[in-house]
Design a protein around this nucleic acid. Structure first.
Lengths: 117, 117
DNA sequence: CCGATGTGAAACCTTAAGGTTTCATAATTT
DNA sequence: AAATTATGAAACCTTAAGGTTTCACATCGG
């Protein structure tokens, strides 16, 4: 299971792919894009406990996807989109496969020396 | 934990976000982009057991990210990029946050009526 | 027909992920 | 100062995720 690689003293930081895997966390990102919000307000939009939401917020923050800001007794969270760039780069690699024409040609070329056995 | 929504008789299919969350699976997708490969060949690139790789292949297939094709006694897998479009669409929503100028303006507007408490 | 190959299914194990409840602490109000 | 509000930390529970090993089967090569 855990693929967390402690790496002696480096960032045990959470992987972006892992962070966005959970639907609740995706919802959080969506909610916090337009405006900063304190935990209680945020959790009022979920059916799970405030504490659970708080944990998700921590995970997202550790992944660099949210920023925390203390204002009085409350902690406000807001979207920090930067880490999503990594996802975008990862996806970009697959762009070439989306062009069906190129894909068809590619398969044709491959099949020329190895047709079907 | 399980966020699987059975939905009476629809696709219990695996969520793409979940499917790509595991690094081994991302490696599999990368390997199977250019050419179709049978399980044994694929698993030779991993340190885990062939059976474990086989399970990852199933998960990716269920997520629609791989296609299976039986050829004799072997099963060959190949990348099926289509489902990645969903990810791309999801990411596209966040594009507006990447333009720092717009972000700065947006924050300025917001702060006009609620400055800092 | 027989032994070697290629795979998937089952049963099981360990651990982390997602939740909950309870408790402690700090800032706000009255 | 006392009561209230906002949160995070701890301790715990349940279950699914990622692995392993063992077993059954189908296909291939002789």
């Amino acid at each position: 299971m855990g693929q967390a690689k402690p790496t002696p003293d480096a960032k045990p930081a959470i992987d972006v792919f892992q962070a966005i895997a959970d639907p609740s966390r995706r919802k959080l990102l969506e909610m916090l894009g337009d405006e900063e919000m304190p935990v209680t307000t945020i959790s009022s939009h979920f059916s799970m406990s405030r504490t659970a939401v708080s944990k998700h917020l921590r995970i997202l923050t550790d992944a660099g996807l949210l920023t925390e800001r203390k204002v009085g007794r409350e902690t406000r969270y807001r979207l920090e989109p930067a880490p999503l760039q990594e996802l975008k780069r990862w996806l970009a690699y697959y762009d070439r496969f989306w062009d069906n024409k190129m894909l068809a040609l590619q398969r044709y070329v491959e099949s020329s020396d190895d047709h079907e056995e």
